[in-house]
Design a protein around this nucleic acid. Sequence first.
DNA 1: TCTGGGGTCCTAGGACCC
DNA 2: TCTGGGGTCCTAGGACCC
Length: 349
Amino acid sequence: MDAFFAAIEERNRPKLKGMPIVVGADPEGGKGRGVVSTANYKAREYGIRSAIPIGEAWEKSEAARKAGKPAAVFIGGSYGDYGKVSANIYEIVRKHVEQIERASIDEMYMDLSFAGSYEKAIEICDAIKEEIREQEKLTCSIGIGPNKLVAKIASDRKKPDGLVVVEEKEVQDFLDPLSVRVIPGIGPKAEVELQKLNIKAISDLRKVSLETLRAHFGKWGGEMWRKARGISDSPVEESHETKSVSKQETFHKDLLDPVELTGVLKKLAHDTFGALKEDGFSGFRTLTLAVRFKGFDTKTVRHTFKNTQSDAHTLEFEAIKLFLPFLDKRRNERARPIRLLGVRLEKLT
DNA sequence: TCTGGGGTCCTAGGACCC
DNA sequence: TCTGGGGTCCTAGGACCC
């Protein structure tokens, strides 16, 4: 989906049509904590993008406003509603395609091999795009390729409202000029490491031997070697099992008070357990506590129980037990304000 | 202008087992 | 004065994705 959350807000509120829209944390006049979740294309013209600090987005909006352009509209977001729209879109797609993998709230993979030809696949995708536009008043971008990797990269090339087809014989010419960064799994760190080896484009990556990549990146190096060639055999998988459930909270202001912190942690543990139940699980074995300090330095500690635990009180108790060493340290050393606490449950039943 | 929330996967060291 | 090989599980950290 194109600028999914922002597009839904723009659709729902006719007054916002054509305005720059930012869904994310409350900017609080530039003092807000948090990041941009989604910016629509108008807001992107101001340099506002997903994942940038909300305060920075606010500054960019202010700069535009002073230049005589409309200020961006900041919206907190209604994530439950977005989930419902996502479900509607899934239902539309399902009328055309049987095998679908929901990759995230706004992305899915469709196995179109039943179409038999690229021409037929394009027809199906055109119909899907049309139906989503008609029924949901939203646009999406689709990539068609011989596998998930190529299709995903293709889907990003002509946003918004794009349809990009890359047939087998075109794969290498399509990939070669692109930055290695378009390969899913190559993020900022890997990009820097690759640049040290003078690798920027996928064509550069393809010139490096499998051995060299393995030596630098281990198992992942082998994967990169394959991806640079557009090789991917990952199937379109309809079901996926949830492996963890978590809740975390960044505080409005960094916290120091042990009483306040343990109170927050208890609530967090309780809510995480609620989410676990809501997801249809009865218990867990591993509990991880995350503590993020002022300055973003983050520590995690975990405990794995011998047996499955299915009681909220046990969870709260153990979470606080894991947290105690952080508090003890506080009494001996200088205080370290805490920015975030998080609770994650794994090994679910 | 400091950096959300909810996830997945991988690595590396140590304990432990046969 | 020395201690293999193969495996699993646990912990902590980190990269990455939407």
